[in-house]
Structure formats: structure tokens, C-alpha cells
Design a protein around this nucleic acid. Structure first.
Length: 478
RNA sequence: CGGGGUGUGGCCCAGUUGGUCCAAGGCGUCUGGUUUGGGACCAGAAGAUCGUGAGUUCGAAUCUCACCACCCCGACCA
């Protein structure tokens, strides 16, 4: 729980995990719930997710993906059908054993993901090649009873979108998987977050997938956050759920499938990437409030003038931005500054007697924590540019940060700290990854796209000394 | 699942050699007033089965036993 008494966040440098927790609760993104591991997302936090969702939704619709909805419950036997899949998820399943006052003969799992919920139906829907490709998406909640929950990043229940597609050929399916990764990469850019997109290792990929593509994000404590994944499932699930189609050749074939998802974990990533010791810093694209106006006055006369003025400005700005006027009479300007800085509002306008008299406003930008005075007539143009600048600057800061926190190494003996990432040539042997994890708590995060078809820079694997295949990124992760 | 910690008004908590505790303080809330350019102040008010159960005792927030819940670290983690 946040310590509201101290009124200041734990410093990032003191205890990053504590800082994150303090911020999530004090900025009113979320609330602890009565249910272990589950979070209550408050309006301010949910709005950030909804803004991310709106953008992704738009992108998917533009691309011709249709939305669908399947039940939250999955027959347990369906889930058990794909053997890697069930092995991966069994430990974290919530299972319904009783309903309607009776014990269920056929137990139901609360979906941890919906492959097993959907594909039997896909088999029904897909008859011939004419029904392909099938590209559906659902916005849903899923439940994964992880041993160690973390606000936004790993709550037991979370909201996400999961796309499930079926194609005739591997080429098409793999192209789709890659396209979705690109869309996710764009969505992270929309949040002013540079990600590392690429491929997962054998041990890190999705249970049931042939290949998993991922976008990895670097938090300010140097840990990696898996931002979104796009899986090429091959025919693994199609075999189990008998998803075949009649080809133009007259023969029956298995479909080639993908699934891809992005969750509200992205909100946690935004906090961990952009936040500072004063609180959240939101890029304008996903800020529930983009401009907050603080009227400042001393007596009734100036109050009237200032409020008139700020109302006019706010009415004007509301046409283009999400604007909030903070007219609470019982709080001081200083209190309000801190209040909205904690919540990461990108731009603050201060309007007091001075501004009214000179026909100006004072503009504060949260990304740099600086103030400037702007002539009222130039405000619209100024803000338009400022919003772009803030986005660019946040992105650049994050890019510089991650760039300066990756160390290229030739041998794992060079690993001293675990609060940075390492780039190294790797044999891709799962056994070596296990060793690395045991010794340093570090795992492979991603084979960056640019390295996928490039041979390793160094001949020897940085762990085992065997022949290295390609250059991967390694880090601790959330 | 292993290690550690915590449970006291809405929130943060003090109080644990048993009695002076029908529980202190701060934040927040409410009322009134003064304030308002970087986390305002004064006065007053409301608000508590001290996690649950049993036990010891003349007497339990405090001691004993059992249980429950949550948090943190780790293992696990698409």
C-alpha cells in the first residue's frame, strides 16, 4: 500500500520496485483489490489503456481484422488437447469445479488465452480454401494464476486483445505474424516507447507455438518487459482441433495459424519507461488529460477575471485536446502542480493575474519540467508543436537510455551487473540458457530482427564456447 | 512452493515487561473562518467488533495455541 503520509514517491534510485508501486497507487492508476493478485484499475489508469486500445483497434480494423467474442470458460479437455500448451498453462489455471449448485462433471477452465476455446469452432467455420484467411480478434479478460503478481505487469486477471488467424500457407501465416509484430512496434512508438522487436528463443516461446515474435521494452531499472507477442502456431493446434480445409486441389489440408496479443501490461511499461521521481510522464497520445489549466487568483475580483479568462482558453482548447480545469478552491497552486505532475499530464497552463493582464499564459511541460510564457494569440500554434516535441523528446530519452544500457560482451564472465542488457553471440542451445539463468538470473529476451539472418559477430558462444549462431539480447525480466 | 514481513477508524501508523487504552498521532473527510504564483493555516466535529477463533487471567491490542488474509524477495511465468 502507498504511504500517503509522506506525500513523496520513493526515489527510483533508492528502490525502483517500490517507486513503481507507490506511483501506481498514488497516481490513482490502480487500487489493491480484495482478491489476491487481482487489481482494481481506476478511471485514470483505465483511460490510458483505453487510449492504447483505441489506437490498436483502429489499426486492426484498417487491416481488415474483425472482432469476435468467445466465452470466458473453456472445457478443460480442450485445453488439455495440445500437450505443450497445457504443460505451459496448467500451473496457472483457475478451474471451475462447481456451478449451478452442483459439481460439474466436465470441469471448466477460466481462459488463460483462447486458442483452445476458439479453434474447435474454427474447424466448424472453415470448410474450404474459400473461407481463408480467417482473421479474428477479441478484446477480453484472461486469468493466469501466477505465483507472483505485479501491478499491471502480471495481475492474475488482465485485459488484452488476442488475435487468432488461419491461413492456407505457411508463407502467409508467417507474413501475418510478422505484420502484427510491426503493428505492435508502431503501437509502442505511439506510446513514445522504442522497443526491441524480434524472435524468441526455444525456451522463451509460447507454449504451443512454432515461433514467437516479441517486442521487448527496457524499463528504467534495466529489466526487460515483454511488450506484446505474435506467434506462428504452424499446424500444432490445427492438428488437435482438426481445423482442415478442402484445397482447390481437392485434398484436405491443415490450416496454418497465428495468435497475437497485447495486454494492459503496456500501461505498466509506460510507467516504467517514462516515469521519473516526480511521478508519471505521459506522452500526449495516451494522456487522459493532455492539458491541465490552473487558474490562480488572490481575491474575488481577480478570481472573476482569471476564471473568465481560463474558461475561454479551455473552451477553445477542448476542440483539439483533452483538457481539464482544476478549479478546486481549497487547494493551493503548488499543491495542484505536484498533483498533476504526479499524474503525468504533459502540459500545464498557469493563468493568474499577471497572465490576464499581459494577455499571456505560462506553459509548463512535464517531460522537461520547464516553464515558458506564451502570448495568448500564439498559444494554438505553440501547443501543436509542443505536443509533438514532448512525444519526440520522451521517445528520444527512452531510446538514449536503452541504447546506453546495452553492453556487448564476448564471454559471460564480463557480466558484472544485472541492471543492464547484454548483446552477445549465442549458440542458441537451450542448455546454455538454463546455465545463464541459474548463474545470473538472466535469460535471452530477443533475437533482434536485424540479426535474424545475420551470422554471429563472434565465432564462439559467450556461454559455452561452442559455435555461435546469431547475436541475441539477454536481460533480467519482469 | 521456499524465505521474510504485516494485520489497530477511509488511508499511514503509535502502543507488545498485561491494568494508567471504552486505544494516541498524522493524512483524508465534514463545519466555520482566514488563505491561494511550487505540496496553506486556525478552531471544532464525526469516524475503531484492535484479522478470526479458542485459551490463560480479577483484567488482553498486548501472553499462549490454532487458523485466515495480504504484501515483499525468490523459484515458476504465454
Amino acid at each position: 500500500m502507498p504511504n500517503l503520509e509522506k506525500k513523496t514517491l520513493t526515489k527510483q534510485s533508492e528502490d525502483f520496485a517500490q517507486w513503481y508501486q507507490d506511483l501506481v497507487y498514488e497516481a490513482e492508476l490502480a487500487e489493491v483489490s480484495e482478491v489476491r493478485g487481482c487489481g482494481i484499475v481506476r478511471p485514470y489508469g483505465l483511460k490510458i489503456w483505453e487510449l492504447i486500445k483505441a489506437e490498436l483497434s483502429r489499426r486492426l480494423e484498417d487491416d481488415g481484422v474483425e472482432n469476435v467474442y468467445f466465452p470466458i470458460f473453456v472445457p478443460l479437455e480442450n485445453l488439455e488437447a495440445e500437450k505443450d500448451h497445457v504443460k505451459g498453462f496448467a500451473p496457472e489455471l483457475a478451474i471451475v469445479t462447481h456451478a449451478g449448485g452442483e459439481e460439474l462433471t466436465n470441469k471448466l477452465a477460466v481462459r488463460p488465452t483462447s486458442e483452445a476455446a476458439m479453434y474447435k469452432t474454427y474447424a466448424k467455420w472453415i470448410q474450404s480454401y474459400k473461407y481463408l484467411p480467417l482473421r479474428l480478434n477479441q478484446w477480453a479478460n484472461v486469468v493466469r494464476w501466477e505465483k507472483r503478481p505485479r501491478a499491471f505487469l502480471r495481475w492474475s486477471e488482465f485485459l488484452w486483445q488476442e488475435g487468432h488467424t488461419a491461413f492456407a500457407t505457411e508463407t502467409e501465416a508467417r507474413a501475418e505474424s510478422r505484420k502484427m509484430l510491426d503493428i505492435y512496434t508502431d503501437i509502442y512508438k505511439f506510446m513514445a516507447i522504442p522497443g526491441f522487436s524480434g524472435q524468441k528463443s526455444e525456451s522463451e516461446k509460447f507454449a504451443g507455438a512454432v515461433d514467437t515474435l516479441t517486442i521487448e521494452v527496457m524499463a528504467k531499472d534495466g529489466k526487460a518487459i515483454q511488450g506484446a507477442t505474435s506467434h506462428y502456431l504452424g499446424t500444432n493446434f490445427a492438428e488437435v482441433f482438426k481445423v482442415n480445409y478442402l484445397g482447390s486441389d481437392g485434398n484436405s489440408h491443415l490450416v496454418q495459424q497465428n495468435s497475437w496479443g497485447l495486454s494492459w501490461r503496456a500501461v505498466g511499461a509506460v510507467v516504467m519507461v517514462h516515469g521519473d521521481d516526480n511521478g508519471l510522464r505521459l506522452p500526449p497520445n495516451i494522456a487522459p488529460i493532455q492539458v491541465v489549466i490552473i487558474p490562480i487568483y488572490k481575491d474575488e475580483l481577480s478570481q472573476k477575471k482569471v476564471l473568465e479568462n481560463s474558461n475561454k482558453i479551455s473552451a477553445d482548447l477542448k476542440k483539439k485536446y483533452r483538457v481539464k480545469r482544476d478549479e478546486r478552491d481549497n487547494e493551493s497552486p503548488g499543491f495542484k502542480y505536484n498533483y498533476w505532475e504526479l499524474r503525468g499530464v504533459p502540459v500545464r497552463l498557469e493563468i493568474g493575474g499577471r497572465e490576464v493582464e499581459e494577455n499571456k499564459v505560462t506553459v509548463f511541460r512535464r517531460d522537461l519540467n520547464t516553464k515558458e510564457t506564451v502570448v495568448l494569440g500564439e498559444l494554438a500554434v505553440y501547443l501543436k508543436k509542443l505536443m509533438k516535441d514532448i512525444h519526440k523528446n520522451l521517445y528520444q530519452q527512452a531510446l538514449d537510455f536503452s541504447g546506453s544500457h546495452i553492453k556487448k560482451i564476448k564471454s559471460w564472465e564480463e557480466i558484472k551487473a544485472t541492471n543492464i542488457w547484454y548483446e552477445a553471440s549465442w549458440s542458441e542451445d537451450p542448455a546454455t540458457e538454463k546455465e545463464l539463468k541459474e548463474k545470473f538470473g538472466i535469460v535471452s529476451r530477443v533475437l533482434p530482427l536485424k540479426n535474424v539472418s545475420k551470422p554471429a559477430k563472434n565465432k564462439k558462444c559467450f556461454i559455452s564456447g561452442q559455435a555461435a549462431k546469431r547475436d541475441w539480447l539477454f536481460a533480467k525480466c519482469y
